[in-house]
Design a protein around this nucleic acid. Structure first.
Lengths: 250, 250
DNA sequence: TTTTATTGTCTCATTTTGCGACAATAATAA
DNA sequence: TTATTATTGTCGCAAAATGAGACAATAAAA
């Protein structure tokens, strides 16, 4: 979990605003992108600690949790209207390690007394998001050096139970892939059949037969076929597709 | 949401134990049973109010949420080792209606001041459970007149967003039915193929072809076939089955 | 003994899936 | 200009899965 940098006034005036967020409740988001045939997620690195964590935050007193997560995504990615799905709430006592949070606070020269509420137990409502890798320049928050893409197969060690959170996100994404046809949220507006197949292969972790994949996807009737473009490869040019009702691009 | 009747000392000594539960966090459980070819759930009715709600409760300060839910299930059903699955966390601000909670408190002659924390916003982590209808005598809690089975198609009006909670539980159960072969948790140890098919039909809300269903289920290789028993019907006696590795019953 | 309702299983037609083949084609090499 | 090469779109066929009816077996009731 990572602190929101939005209400900075709160960090300075805790005493004046003792209950700006709901206590004991956090959210974490597993933000998936796709690049170079690999599935990636955004991971933040805290100042001076070598600690890595999922992007996340807290819920304001009069804010829907879904809105809090969208607020966090906007801060990290700059995007609105992201495909987002809640997949699990992690509520074990043991998931929270106060000594880790203490390290983070101390590394940022924040008073343990003022921020004592952060050392209490938290439950975390976890979401995954699917975004177009190319549209995003990840933004770190006030406590972090970086917010960067990592291959899901090669993650750095993550704090708390965040490794488990990522695994459950991946598992849910796999289960929802066929059911909700969610793959196209990871691609630009226009994409080739091969790119779409690569997304599916990256998520499922297995190779798919080209002809069968194409037949299955096209039979769903949710892709619009556009004019071919010559993409500079030494072969027949593929069609480009877009997702959903016909979308005119000029 | 319904109060746990377990730590009654707390209700009497709130001032002494001001933070017995995590604030703002509740759980609700949709407890499914199967009887008379219908899918049913447990619903509680509050004293003197005509208000109906799902069984639920709060999480103790050092208690895993999953354990809190199991504690609640034990209180309502007397059963341990129940099949249980978390399916969503409801976190909208608007879901909580303080005036409803106030009505419930007043009807039980509980001080609004002492129990003011119950009038604050709550998020709810929701679970569904599958149990064998015949094994259970539902138990109301301290604030309720009854805890009874209701046909999912004919529920009384429920407080808060509990109607939506039930619908999402049903939707998740349907999605998990084929994936997790969960149907048999609703039946006794020994059951006939017809009973199992009726469970599937009740959950999916549609009729299934008898031969196809039987072939599919048997091909999974997870049922043990036992000796036929003469069940008193005017026809060929069906086999009895049990679920899982071979279980000897005498 | 006959009738009736339900069960277990089978067959057959239809649909879906897995997998290879082949012509089309865009850049590159000759 | 022409041949080569890699990839694409599509087709065909075999195998597997599915939907739906048919029929003998059988336990109780008529």
């Amino acid at each position: 979990m990572v602190f929101s940098n939005y209400p900075t006034y709160f960090w300075k005036n805790y005493i004046m605003q003792p209950i700006e967020y709901l206590k004991h409740i956090a959210f974490d988001s597993v933000i998936f992108g796709f690049s170079g045939e690999k599935l990636k997620i955004l991971v933040m690195k805290y100042h001076n600690t070598g600690l890595y964590a999922l992007p996340g935050g807290f819920v304001r007193l009069e804010e829907n949790i879904n809105d809090a997560v969208r607020r966090g995504l906007k801060e990290r990615t700059g995007l609105d209207n992201i495909y987002l799905e809640q997949f699990y709430t992690f509520g074990d006592v043991a998931r929270f390690k106060p000594e880790v949070m203490q390290t983070i606070l101390e590394s940022n020269h924040l008073s343990l007394e003022k921020y004592h509420w952060l050392l209490d137990r938290f439950i975390s409502v976890a979401y995954y998001a699917l975004i177009n890798y190319k549209e995003v320049v990840p933004q770190p928050d006030a406590l972090s050096d970086s917010c960067d893409w990592y291959d899901v197969e090669q993650l750095p060690p993550l704090i708390f139970d965040h490794k488990e959170v990522v695994e459950k996100a991946l598992q849910t994404l796999r289960e929802n892939l066929e059911k909700k046809l969610v793959g196209m949220n990871l691609l630009p507006n226009l994409f080739t059949m091969k790119e779409l197949q690569q997304v599916y292969e990256a998520i499922l972790g297995e190779k798919l037969h080209r002809g069968t994949f194409q037949r299955k996807i096209l039979s769903l009737g949710i892709l619009n076929r556009h004019e071919k473009q010559f993409l500079g490869a030494a072969n027949k040019a593929p069609f480009l597709y877009s997702f959903g009702p016909i979308l005119e691009l000029k």
